[in-house]
Amino acid sequence: MSDECHLCLLGLIFLSSLLTGTSGVDDAYVFISSGEDVRLLCNNALHDCTSTMWLYNRFRYSATVELIALGLKKTDTERHERLSLGPDCSLNIKNIAKEDYGYYSCRQYVNDKQQGTDTHVDLHVLHVSSSSSSSSQTEISAGRSVTLSCQLYSFAEVSCGDWICSERIELFWVNQAGVKLTRSDSRYQILSSSDHCIITLNTTLLNEDHNREWRCNVTQRDQVKSSVTYTVKSSGEKTSSSISYGRVC
């Protein structure tokens, strides 16, 4: 991490821990890669789900969107086809998109009265894109330069950079052997954004890069939370992006 992280204020630590799954009774912090499916737990669920509401905010004070109302899925949202309610009142989201990051709340209503406190889930999405194409499939031949951009889309009350510093979040690239790529390797140009929420990898493809993998990891306190693998198909074949979800139990 850059020395800039040492400038972070102690008062910016608003997340006590980052776990895949639940953290305590009222809050959960979930990291996932785009393209994966995710299950958000509702810790305050009652004996059935007819009292359950799932609400969504892109940011803490943005407009609230109803996803599930009294156990029934709302159909007036863009992603309603990807949503479902589990038997334990959890919210299931298929094929996560980078736009799905944000603040999710599970709330219970009985006879028009709220029961208990909300369960909150902060969903953070890791996404990799290539400068060669807007899609994950493009022709790349040996000798051509490729730039891969890995970004963590994150809900945070403070700036992304301050949150990353305070919670010891790190984005970095590794090769298919799991070795971390550094700026000292002359073959790669690796740059981080000023807020540390985006890290790019630029390299020129070689003939031996056929089927080579590069993986972007996001870690918290040196534990892998999620990762995205980008596989290169050279020699006029297609480049494909595959996803793997790393979780810590």
Rank of each mutant, 00 (worst) to 15 (best):
I96Q: 09
K94I: 05
H120M: 06
D112M: 04
S135M: 05
D112V: 01
A142Y: 08
K113C: 06
A97I: 02
E99L: 09
S134W: 00
Y101V: 07
R107S: 05
L123C: 04
D112H: 03
S105T: 07
V110Q: 13
E139Q: 07
E139H: 05
C106V: 07
Q115T: 12
A97S: 14
H124Y: 04
D112K: 02
R107G: 01
E139I: 10
S134V: 10
K113V: 12
R107T: 04
Y101S: 10
N111S: 13
K113Q: 12
S132G: 14
Y103T: 02
S141A: 08
I96R: 06
E99Q: 14
S105V: 03
K98Q: 15
G143S: 11
G116F: 01
S136C: 06
S132I: 02
S145H: 04
Q137Y: 13
Y109P: 00
G116T: 05
Q114R: 03
S132F: 00
T138A: 06
S132T: 09
S136N: 14
S129M: 03
N111G: 07
K94M: 13
Y103N: 11
L126S: 06
K113G: 01
Y109N: 10
Y104Q: 11
H120S: 07
V125G: 09
D122I: 01
S130L: 04
S134T: 14
G102N: 12
I140S: 11
V110Y: 09
L123H: 05
G116V: 02
Y103L: 09
C106E: 09
Q137K: 08
N111L: 07
S141I: 08
D122M: 01
G102H: 06
H120Y: 08
H120T: 09
Q114P: 00
E139A: 06
D100C: 08
S133Q: 06
T138Q: 07
G102L: 03
G143K: 06
Y109H: 05
Y109L: 14
S131L: 10
Q115S: 08
I140W: 05
S130T: 15
S133C: 10
E139G: 00
C106M: 08
K94S: 15
G143M: 10
K94Q: 15
Y103G: 02
S131T: 14
L126F: 07
K113W: 01
S145I: 12
C106P: 01
H120V: 08
Y101T: 07
L126A: 11
Q115R: 04
S145V: 13
Q108W: 01
Q115W: 02
D122C: 01
R144H: 12
A97M: 14
I96K: 04
G102S: 11
D100Y: 08
H127G: 02
I140T: 15
V121N: 13
S130M: 11
H124R: 13
D122N: 02
S132A: 13
T119L: 00
L126R: 03
S130Q: 08
